[in-house]
């Protein structure tokens, strides 16, 4: 996947590029808005990472063009970390923001999140007994309490909830959640299921993950 990085500072561009490449993305670099727009005339990218402070056209203005006219999700990079900047960024249509200095893990997490959110048409909300899964925000609501659980656990729960009452084979979960065809994450799946059960139980969810021996799991409404 090709990601456009727009920043006027060479070293930061390079750093982000290295971090992206190490994670398996292809990075395209531009030193300002003009260069970025010129590149986008003939090429396509999946997402853009844009610095707020740039000479010439600012990051906000560029974000507006990218997200509204070209339909490219944008992550803004800001130094200040104060809301004024952030708000302006959201108004300009950016999907998310990063505050300098950020860690490569944070960058990749946010990039992943917007890529999976963007252009995916799914049933957004799944309700089962007193549990609601919101696939746009990755929130779980149990009664009136909002629960934020790790992304992987959410994905597993969403796969099970999407066909509740049916037994889902472990291989299907591994493929849907990890993109894993060879069963490398078997062990992870076990621990995630255990934790997910604990969390659901702790917050009084009226659903239960049942193990179907030798096949997989099934989400059932209880009580």
């Amino acid at each position: 996947m090709r990601i456009l990085v727009v920043d006027d500072e060479l070293h930061i561009r390079q750093l982000i590029a290295i971090q992206l490449q190490q994670a398996g993305y292809e990075a395209v670099l531009a030193k300002d808005a003009q260069e970025a727009l010129l590149y986008l005339e003939d090429e396509e990218v999946s997402a853009a990472i844009v610095d707020v402070m740039m000479p010439g056209m600012t990051g906000f203005e560029l974000t507006e063009i990218l997200s509204q006219e070209l339909d490219i999700p944008v992550i803004l990079v800001t130094a200040k970390g104060q809301l004024e900047d952030k708000e302006e960024g959201f108004l300009a249509g950016s999907e998310d923001y990063l505050v300098k200095p950020f860690e490569p893990k944070e960058l990749l997490f946010r990039l992943n999140a917007i890529l999976r959110r963007y252009g995916k048409s799914q049933r957004n909300k799944i309700q089962l007994a007193n549990v609601v899964l919101d696939r746009t925000t990755y929130d779980v609501t149990i009664n009136d309490e909002t629960l934020i659980i790790p992304m992987k656990e959410f994905d597993i729960l969403a796969v099970l909830a999407n066909s509740s009452g049916q037994t889902i084979p472990r291989s299907v979960i591994l493929r849907d959640v990890w993109g894993d065809e060879e069963g490398k994450h078997e062990f992870s799946l076990n621990t995630h299921i255990t934790r997910l059960r604990e969390r659901l139980n702790q917050y009084g969810a009226k659903v239960e993950i049942q193990t179907v021996r030798g096949i997989g799991y099934r989400l059932e409404v209880t009580g």
């Binding site: 990755y138 909002t146 790790p150």
Partner: peptide
């Protein structure tokens, strides 16, 4: 508050924490 917590999602994920919100 909800927004502030969402912004830390990546750290929550990293440590596999869960957050319950009653707001």
């Amino acid at each position: 508050i909800r927004k502030a917590i969402r912004h830390y999602r990546w750290r929550l994920d990293e440590k596999e924490l869960d957050v319950s919100l009653k707001l």
